[in-house]
């Protein structure tokens, strides 16, 4: 028990800290940060651990959001059950698509996901318009059940709920990072052929990693669906696909807190910038180029390496003085 607390205590502290920020910051901002950081974690898991870059993340998030939305619009009123439906839809979809996609080499993988996203958008916007009601979207905010302890329409209730979910995901990811599977994922990223020659089935490892990452995206999708009480095709717009790439790279891929830090900075900036600037593509695009040119290291890795760099500098100074 103590050992578990020692391993995972930091995560609980960090997300409790985000909750405490509620005293100073608006609830909507913190909710957005929490959900988006979960979504970014999905991207970071794929790129940082498996070395796969997906330009189609919105598709996996969108499928789950629509799972929840369709359930709450047509069938039930229980938001938790709706979330379950959405997550199951997202995981099943990722399982099937993953079986095909993880066989592809990295360039094919990225582009195939981009195509998937475009097609997903089209399907929900037009092909299934009689079910999804196209751009009008599905509305069900008033239909969702409310309980005394958990009322999704109360921002503070929702923030608490989202933070607990996020902390749970971070704990799972950290656990995986420490497991043999986590090491195998990194090994696939570094040298897939070598791992095959150690006897591992890399196809299955990549498939499971892919499904895990997209399950995380699915959780983010269902959280959005119950938070807004509304879902429309805009959630899987191809235009929004690079957003998560920017945020992921900004925070630093593969690091545990990178997605949270990146999201925090990005959304704060977006809120400040969009008030004066309508052409957000200019901002996101420029940031993407700058982050890449800066060496794709991300804020989190800069923060992590700063103390070591300082120590090295100090040692260097001492040795050159002596």
């Amino acid at each position: 028990m103590m050992r578990l607390l020692k391993t995972y205590g930091t995560i609980l502290l960090v997300f409790a800290g985000v909750g405490v920020l509620r005293l100073a910051l608006p609830g909507a901002f913190l909710i957005h940060v929490t959900i988006f950081s979960i979504y970014t974690m999905a991207f970071s898991f794929l790129m940082g651990r498996l070395g796969l870059v997906s330009f189609g993340q919105p598709a996996y998030m969108g499928i789950a959001a629509y799972g929840t939305g369709l359930y709450l619009h047509y069938f039930g009123t229980n938001p938790l059950l709706g979330m379950m439906v959405g997550i199951i839809a997202g995981v099943a979809f990722a399982g099937v698509i993953g079986g095909l996609f993880v066989r592809l080499s990295s360039s094919y993988f990225t582009l195939a996901n981009l195509a998937l996203c475009a097609i997903g958008f089209f399907v929900f916007q037009r092909a299934l318009v009689h079910i999804t009601r196209g751009d009008t979207g599905l509305w069900y905010l008033g239909r969702m059940e409310r309980w005394p302890l958990l009322n999704f329409r109360d921002p503070d209730h929702f923030l608490t709920f989202a933070l607990i979910v996020a902390a749970g995901i971070w704990i799972v990811v950290k656990g995986l990072d420490r497991s043999v599977f986590g090491a195998a994922c990194l090994a696939v990223k570094a040298n897939e052929r070598k791992l095959q020659f150690l006897g591992y089935n890399t196809y299955r490892i990549k498939w499971l990693g892919f499904v895990m990452a997209n399950s995380i995206a699915a959780v983010a999708g269902t959280l959005y669906a119950v938070y807004f009480g509304f879902v429309s095709p805009a959630i899987m717009d191809v235009l929004r696909a690079p957003e998560v790439v920017v945020v992921g790279l900004l925070g630093g891929v593969g690091s545990l807190y990178g997605p949270l830090i990146g999201t925090f900075v990005y959304i704060a900036m977006q809120d400040l910038v969009s008030a004066i600037f309508v052409y957000w593509e200019l901002v996101v695009g420029t940031m993407l180029v700058l982050v890449m040119m800066a060496g794709e290291r991300g804020i989190a890795s800069l923060l992590e390496s700063a103390p070591r760099l300082l120590r090295m500098r100090a040692r260097h100074d001492r040795s050159s003085a002596g």
Binding site: R178, S179, V180, G182, A184, G199
Partner: peptide, 15 residues
Amino acid sequence: QGRCSLGGMCSADLG
């Protein structure tokens, strides 16, 4: 020895 299941890999602590 060939019983290298994904579940086993996830639950085995590398350390």
